[in-house]
Every structure is written in C-alpha cells, then in structure tokens.
Write a protein that binds this DNA or RNA. Structure first.
Length: 106
DNA sequence: ACTTTGACGACTG
DNA sequence: GCAGTCGCCAAAG
C-alpha cells in the first residue's frame, strides 16, 4: 500500500519537528499537518517509512495511550522503543507507557 | 476506475 | 472501562 509516500510529506515534516526528549501522538501530527481527524493517515504514513529509509523519528510518535499504538508489539520491538525513548530522557512506564502531559509535544 | 487495506482518534452507549 | 461506529486519505492489486 504505501510504497512511494510522496503524499505524506506534510506528516513527515511535523514528525521531524518533534524535539529530542519529547513525544507526540498521531492525532497531534494530524492536527498540525492540517488534518485534525486524519490520525489514521499519520500512522499509515509512518508505516510507509519502514520501506523507505526516510529519516523520521517515528519512535517519538505514540498513540493516545502513551504506547506504540495497538499494533502487535513484539517484546523486542517494545524494548527497542523503550530504550530509544529513555535514552532521550523520556520516562517510560513499566507497562511501556509514556506520560503524554509530561513529555508530550508541544 | 473500483475495491480493499491500514502504526489511529473521537464519540457514543 | 469496554465495544461498536464513523471519519480520514493514499497506495496496492
């Protein structure tokens, strides 16, 4: 589905704006990109990044639950995300959740 | 050109 | 707190 993501650039731009040590949500990215209700498209846009080697800090984009959405979190992947975030100074809960009010961006 | 498919969010009951 | 529904938009087949 998401081969060449030329139409997602606005979303990527917003994700790149997220400063180190901060996290944001799909909804925020969508809102900032001018699509308040297109959170789904944000997730899809980020999914396309896996195929393209685009430099976007997707690990800073979390779901509203403060975790990496509802996808099938493999233990290895979850640990990797947690490690990346903690390395940036973001506290991760034991359940793998982040305090959005505390580390959320903006 | 049409249908299906997704890293989701907000709202309702 | 949980389950169901709608909205969103681009790419793949």
């Amino acid at each position: 589905m998401a081969g060449s993501a030329s139409g997602w650039e606005p979303f990527y731009r917003e994700v790149r704006r997220v400063p180190r040590g901060r996290v944001t949500t799909y909804g925020e990215i969508a809102r900032l990109a001018g699509r308040p209700r297109a959170a789904r498209q944000v997730g899809y846009a980020l999914a396309a990044l896996r195929s393209n080697a685009t430099a976007v800090p997707w690990h800073r984009v979390l779901g509203k639950r403060g975790a990496w959405a509802v996808i099938r979190l493999t233990d290895a992947a979850a640990a990797r995300q947690r490690s990346l975030l903690e390395r940036e100074g973001v506290r991760v809960d034991a359940s793998g959740r982040v305090s959005l009010p505390e580390f959320g961006w903006p």
